[in-house]
Amino acid sequence: MRQHSDDLVEVLAGSFERELTVNVFHGSNRMLENLRFESWSLDADLGRNIPHQGTGAVVYTSVDGESLVPVGTEGVLSPFRARIEPVMTIRAGDFSESVSLGTFRVVAVPFALDSTTERDGRTLVVGSRVGLKFESLESSIARWGFRFPEQSEAGASAFGEIRRFTSMPVEVDVDDVALPAVKPWEAKQGGRLDAVLELGRTLGGSAVVNSRGAWHIIPDAIGEPVATLTLGEMGTVLDVADEIDTDTVYNEVVGIFEDAAGKPLYAVESVTAGPLSVDGAYEVNTRYYSSDLVKTQAQANSAVKAVLDQSIGSQKYDVQIQCHMNPLLEIGDVAALEGWRRPIVGQVRQISLSDSPLMNVTLRVERELT
């Protein structure tokens, strides 16, 4: 979740007003602050390599006739240099608190215009309106390619490699993993980001930059809820709990690997008892799995068992929710929904925020099969 006070959680459960402004940075230098931001939206999707994408318009009142319209690489809002920090301020009575939604890279200016007036024979700028498209900081790593093929040595820390490849802060919020084998990384378009995302999978989840500007790992497993969503009278839920899809429920996993000398390694793990047994009415549904990080028979056996356990332990399905705005929520958070006909707890996979009082959220919920 984004940083907040305990009082803010209580305020968000009731009636409140909100306002979004942006601060503008060049590197670590804050160039402008508290700019009006209108017609904005911010979408987050855990399934994208660059999860956060947004748009909006900066509205600026000129002080001394200056313009905020960028020209090429020049101008405080030029996409060649600008980063923005959207800040949402929540007010209720005497209460007021601001929440940073994170720092984002400006990637395009789709439109820009100045309002002018004539005075003493001169044309003066009285204000500017500049449209912005922006993305989360994963985009900087996607743009920064390897100059030459890289290599991670066997035994290297996965978190340490993420830190080395990105030169960004890293929050160690799951157990670190030592890479079991030498891992080469290809010098290609987007190769540095691909390496970081694969290291995240090695750590048991998804590597994402959070609102504090640090890389962290969102675990695949759904844990205990850290937030509560309020449905309210205007809220909607598209609940597909009655929909069952067996295509991804595998009761047998076949692993195909190579050892350090390039010789093949095989491992098989099957369900042999219960309603999902390979000898039962469900019959056999086989998944094939490989990984170049597996180099021994013990690692192969462990890998296929983990994949099988994940398959039969639960089936995940998505619930689409429209609920009251909660700016504290981030993708990867586990949230509980209040006000629905049955309890729903799931991992936040998608969030759509805008200047609407409602937001759209996709929760990934587990259905137990055993």
Score class of each variant (00 low, 15 high):
residue 64 D to H: 13
residue 72 G to S: 06
residue 81 R to E: 10
residue 82 A to L: 03
residue 88 M to I: 13
residue 85 E to D: 11
residue 67 S to M: 02
residue 94 D to H: 09
residue 85 E to K: 09
residue 86 P to T: 03
residue 69 V to D: 02
residue 74 E to C: 05
residue 93 G to A: 00
residue 69 V to R: 07
residue 88 M to H: 05
residue 72 G to F: 07
residue 63 V to G: 14
residue 77 L to V: 03
residue 61 T to C: 10
residue 72 G to K: 08
residue 106 V to N: 07
residue 71 V to A: 12
residue 103 T to C: 12
residue 85 E to N: 12
residue 69 V to F: 02
residue 92 A to K: 08
residue 82 A to C: 13
residue 80 F to H: 15
residue 109 V to Q: 13
residue 60 Y to F: 15
residue 98 S to D: 08
residue 67 S to Y: 02
residue 105 R to N: 10
residue 74 E to N: 15
residue 69 V to C: 08
residue 77 L to Y: 09
residue 71 V to Q: 14
residue 77 L to N: 09
residue 98 S to A: 15
residue 95 F to R: 04
residue 88 M to Y: 03
residue 59 V to P: 12
residue 87 V to T: 13
residue 90 I to P: 01
residue 103 T to P: 11
residue 96 S to R: 13
residue 104 F to S: 05
residue 66 E to S: 09
residue 83 R to C: 09
residue 99 V to A: 01
residue 104 F to C: 09
residue 78 S to A: 08
residue 109 V to T: 14
residue 98 S to M: 04
residue 86 P to C: 06
residue 71 V to R: 15
residue 77 L to I: 02
residue 75 G to D: 06
residue 83 R to M: 12
residue 87 V to D: 03
residue 89 T to N: 04
residue 107 V to M: 06
residue 88 M to G: 02
residue 103 T to G: 14
residue 64 D to E: 12
residue 81 R to S: 12
residue 64 D to R: 14
residue 102 G to I: 03
residue 75 G to M: 03
residue 66 E to Y: 13
residue 67 S to L: 00
residue 107 V to C: 07
residue 82 A to I: 05
residue 105 R to S: 10
